[in-house]
């Protein structure tokens, strides 16, 4: 065994050790604050009552107090599910184009392609474009979508349009950041060859660099759509009539059977989008994005 292998294993061991130490320190801090106290028996009973309804979700209203003119439960569930999809799709349809623009601007591969004449100017100007783009993306994604929703709620009220924006802003930041990383990480050999034989930077970029990053970018967008579905569902807690709203209402009224119906609807939604996006991803690359 060479010493290089030893030091590699040493680094890994150090990283794992640091993670374990951080985990222990966090547990110590939280328990010093009295935050890790074990729950009492009665709260476990509540949880047990909730989980005991898992196998018998409601197909119709269980409570005698159903508002007059309320649609059948299953129709209500279907409407909430469609609302969730609608919000997620609308948000993604805004986030992806913006993220493409930001991602291209934020990538540095574009500015660093070698080539004849004039390129020195580009190289000097590059940071003036990609630095601001990266700052915008960082600001957008470091505030969680629920906090964006809260800010909108306080500023102009959380209408459907504001809810779409609350998801679209941080998602554009995240997508843009990952897009720019993918463009920068795409293999550059073909682009270098092309510029070497006289292609302009724009030609080399669009023919030899971008096509190699596109499958990854598409796969990642599908994955983020799945995340957007979850975000849209949760945003229901703040007003929009998505699955989250009805889950909270059902919990507050202790209607556990109905709650499970909504939970299963969310589960089915995620499972379907997961399967569809996996089929498409395998077409492109056969791997799951981790980010």
């Amino acid at each position: 065994m060479s010493s290089a292998t030893d030091s590699r294993a040493g680094t890994r061991r150090a990283v794992v050790g640091a993670i374990a130490a951080a985990g222990l320190a966090s547990a110590a801090l939280l328990s010093a604050q009295g935050q890790l106290a074990l729950p009492g028996l009665d709260s476990l009973e509540l949880l047990a009552r909730f989980f005991s309804h898992a196998l018998r979700p409601a197909l119709d209203y269980g409570s005698p107090f159903v508002p007059v003119g309320a649609p059948p439960l299953l129709l209500q569930v279907a409407t909430a599910t469609w609302r969730t999809v609608q919000l997620a799709v609308a948000a993604m349809s805004l986030a992806v184009p913006v993220a493409l623009l930001l991602g291209f601007a934020g990538a540095s591969a574009w500015w660093r392609l070698p080539g004849p004449g004039g390129r020195a100017v580009l190289r000097r100007l590059g940071p003036l474009v990609y630095a601001p783009a990266r700052v915008v993306m960082t600001l957008a994604r470091s505030v969680h979508e629920l906090l964006w929703a809260l800010l909108f709620l306080a500023a102009v009220g959380l209408s459907d349009t504001a809810a779409v924006l609350a998801i679209a802003i941080p998602y554009a930041g995240t997508l843009g950041k990952v897009f720019s990383e993918m463009i920068d990480e795409a293999p550059r050999d073909a682009a270098v060859q092309l510029t070497g034989s006289g292609a302009t930077a724009a030609q080399a970029f669009s023919v030899a660099l971008l096509p190699r990053a596109l499958p990854d970018m598409a796969a990642y967008s599908f994955y983020r759509f799945e995340c957007a579905l979850r975000s849209a569902a949760v945003l229901g807690f703040f007003g929009p009539e998505t699955l989250g709203k009805f889950i909270r209402l059902a919990w507050n009224e202790s209607l556990y059977a109905e709650l499970w119906t909504y939970l299963y609807a969310l589960f089915a939604l995620i499972a379907v989008s997961d399967m569809a996006s996996r089929a498409l991803r395998q077409r492109f690359l056969g791997e799951t994005p981790a980010r």
């Binding site: 604050q33 890790l36 106290a37 729950p39 709260s43 476990l44 889950i247 909270r248 919990w251």
Partner: peptide, 13 residues
């Protein structure tokens, strides 16, 4: 939401 509401308002849930 489900765990905090049933287990109480601590960091554990």
């Amino acid at each position: 939401f489900l765990l905090v509401e049933s287990l109480g308002y601590t960091a554990l849930p």
